[in-house]
Amino acid sequence: MHRIALLAVPPVTAAELSIPEMALGLARVDGRPCYEVVPCTTRAGTDVGTGTLQIVLRHGLEALPAADSVLVVGAGGRDEADPELLGALREAAAGGKRIASVCGSVFVLAQAGLLDGRRATTYWTYAAELRRRFPRVTVQPDVLYLQDGPVVTSAGLAAALDLCLHIVRTDFGTAVANDVARLVLAAPVRSGEQTQLIAEPVPVRPGISLAGTREWALRRLHEPLTLADLARHHNSSVRTVIRRFRAETGQTPLRWLLDQRIDRARELLETTDLALDQVAQRSGIGSVDSLRQHLVRRSGLTPSAYRAAFGRAATHR
């Protein structure tokens, strides 16, 4: 079982603690929990809540050495952090632990020096401040989450769920992550490169929405779909399809298609024994060489290594 220290930097809201605890707590392999989530703060027994809400955590920084990952949450991250907290984070990072942050808690990672020379993201309204205060950090303000080596940063509170699904997928594969997404009624794992600034998340006029066209495309990922095919199904122009895709998903149609195909390939590698050329064909990626290129870029693993890590044989060991 992977142990995650959920480190609160007060003040924190209940949602900042409950979203990661819920999402990670739902991850299962053969009915067994994948994670133990341990909420903690700098000093155990103190109230870390915001406003009138009282939240008292039982664990202090002693939870960090025993953890495999540390996930930092809390608006207090933008202020000057406690030196003891920063020291504990540096020790955790030096010990090879994965370090992650949600929203404004990225400032704690920056103060600890864990983002120097790395790419990072945060809630878009904090991006300019992060860039100004920490010039050694390459700030990318227009993505949902971003992993640079063992450090993962994410945007605002809603992106915490995307971050958790990314963590589950990294540790246990796409199929397990998508099971969690279904349980919380969320979209399947989204690419971190999707923009935070989606112009129209829920279209006002359903007849104009591309939801039906996206569902149609998901059933035909193995086919060589083009922009013209999408426009024809939506009964609109290519220009309209491109504009609507950006408004509803934050991505271009072709980028969205590639992400879906990579995720389909991952699921096939995890859940079937199909040969690699069949995985490439059924996912719509085409060739084994293309499959290898995209999977290495996205996960750092070749198709064979990915199957060995997340395939049926691996999950039943």
Rank of each mutant, 00 (worst) to 15 (best):
A100E: 10
R136H: 06
T252P: 04
A181E: 03
V180Q: 01
Y123D: 03
T50Y: 13
P39K: 04
V204P: 03
L86W: 09
V102G: 01
L109K: 05
M22I: 11
S287H: 01
G286N: 00
D116C: 10
L210E: 06
L254M: 15
P150H: 01
A128D: 14
E21H: 14
H316A: 15
V37W: 06
L301I: 03
S191D: 10
H234Y: 02
V204I: 13
R78L: 03
C34G: 13
R219W: 01
R3F: 07
G207N: 02
L165E: 02
E21P: 00
M1E: 05
R246C: 03
P203A: 01
G156M: 11
L85D: 00
V288N: 00
L258V: 06
E270W: 00
T170D: 13
E36R: 15
E62P: 02
F134C: 03
G286M: 00
R246S: 12
H222E: 11
L276N: 07
T302F: 00
A44T: 05
V72T: 12
G25S: 10
R32Q: 13
L276E: 09
H234S: 15
A23M: 09
R118V: 06
R3K: 15
E248G: 03
A15K: 14
A155Y: 07
H294A: 12
A5Q: 07
Q194W: 10
I208R: 15
G250R: 07
L221N: 02
R3Y: 05
G156W: 10
L254Q: 11
L7I: 10
T195W: 07
W256S: 00
S290A: 15
G51F: 05
V202L: 12
F172N: 05
A228R: 15
F172L: 11
V48T: 08
D30N: 15
R132N: 10
R298Y: 08
R90E: 08
S69N: 00
P150V: 04
L183M: 12
I19M: 13
A67S: 12
A92Y: 04
A247E: 12
R205T: 09
L61C: 08
E193S: 12
R182W: 02
R243L: 10
I99V: 13
A309R: 15
L268H: 00
S287A: 07
L114Y: 03
G286F: 01
H294Q: 14
I55L: 15
A23W: 02
G74Q: 08
R243M: 06
L161V: 13
